[in-house]
């Protein structure tokens, strides 16, 4: 019996997001200088670079939290200069944070349910009552969240307050909340920071599964080069706000500029 590796239906296709000549500065600090790259539908795209390279700033630009001074961003064919985070969210961009940003006192399930907020349409009036359309709506959302809980294998901690969970699991819950938005583009800010080897392996498996199972496009920032090389389809390398390389993992790995940046050659 052979496992013919049928190409996933969502194999990297048209361009989902295009960043053109973006520059961002805070006062005199130039965080991003004239960076251009694109993200194709269905791929796993990594943004890497040493500390302070501008990775998180780049992510914040993509989801509208920062507004670049120059450059254009084209998302789903529409070009824009300014976009607010909630507009980005409404258009299917979800993200996780470098430091876990969950409601610590709420359960895993409730935290994931918050990811559905944008998709709840019944008015405040209906939500006041126990029964009625709001309840039906919530049941639908709960169903979706349960799918995610099943997917991420966190049934055991469904009713556990997240503040009590170990860090690796909190990261997984955060991924769950981002998935609850049914995003087209998922931004992961250092999903594996601070994890031990086993947690990293688990998280890598989930990222690959999300990409394969839901066809979600993923852009991730990561410190751990080894993980990035194995996970991503293409990689952008930033250093001091400049893009110094862009390509497939093998190309990037052998790029002299990347090696210099990581080994700390004086600029």
């Amino acid at each position: 019996m052979s496992v013919a590796a049928v190409e996933p239906a969502t194999a990297a296709g048209e361009t989902l997001l295009k960043v053109e000549n973006v520059s961002l500065s805070f006062g005199g600090v130039r965080a991003i200088r004239d960076v251009s790259f694109d993200i194709r539908r269905g791929e796993i795209r990594a943004i890497i670079g040493p500390n302070g390279a501008g990775k998180t700033s780049m992510l914040n630009v993509i989801n509208g939290f920062y507004h670049p001074q120059a450059g254009r961003i084209t998302y789903k064919g529409a070009t824009r200069r300014r976009m607010r985070p909630h507009q980005a969210a409404a258009q299917g961009v979800a993200r996780t944070f470098q430091n876990v940003a969950l409601f610590k006192g709420m359960t895993t399930l409730d935290n994931i349910l918050t990811g559905r907020t944008l998709r709840m349409h019944k008015s405040f009036f209906w939500q006041l009552w126990r029964y009625g359309p709001a309840l039906n709506e919530e049941i639908e959302h709960r169903k979706y969240c349960e799918e995610i809980i099943d997917f991420l294998e966190i049934e055991r901690i469904r009713k556990e307050p997240v503040g009590r969970l170990p860090y690796g699991l909190q990261k997984r819950v955060e991924l769950g909340r981002a998935l609850a938005m049914q995003p087209d583009l998922l931004l992961l800010d250092e999903p594996m920071a601070g994890m031990n080897l086993e947690e990293k392996e688990d998280m890598s498996r989930f990222i690959l599964d999300v990409n394969a199972e839901f066809g979600t496009t993923i852009a991730l920032i990561e410190h751990d080069i080894g993980v990035v090389m194995d996970l991503s389809d293409r990689i952008v390398v930033l250093d001091y706000g400049n893009k110094i390389a862009d390509g497939k993992p093998d190309e990037v790995r052998s790029d002299q500029k990347v090696i210099d940046a990581y080994l700390g050659v004086v600029h």
């Binding site: 496992v3 013919a4 590796a5 049928v6 394969a212 199972e213």
Partner: peptide, 12 residues
């Protein structure tokens, strides 16, 4: 079914 959709289904 999870993860198996893309497998060869001649004997699966």
């Amino acid at each position: 079914e999870r993860g198996l959709r893309t497998y060869d289904h001649s004997r699966l």
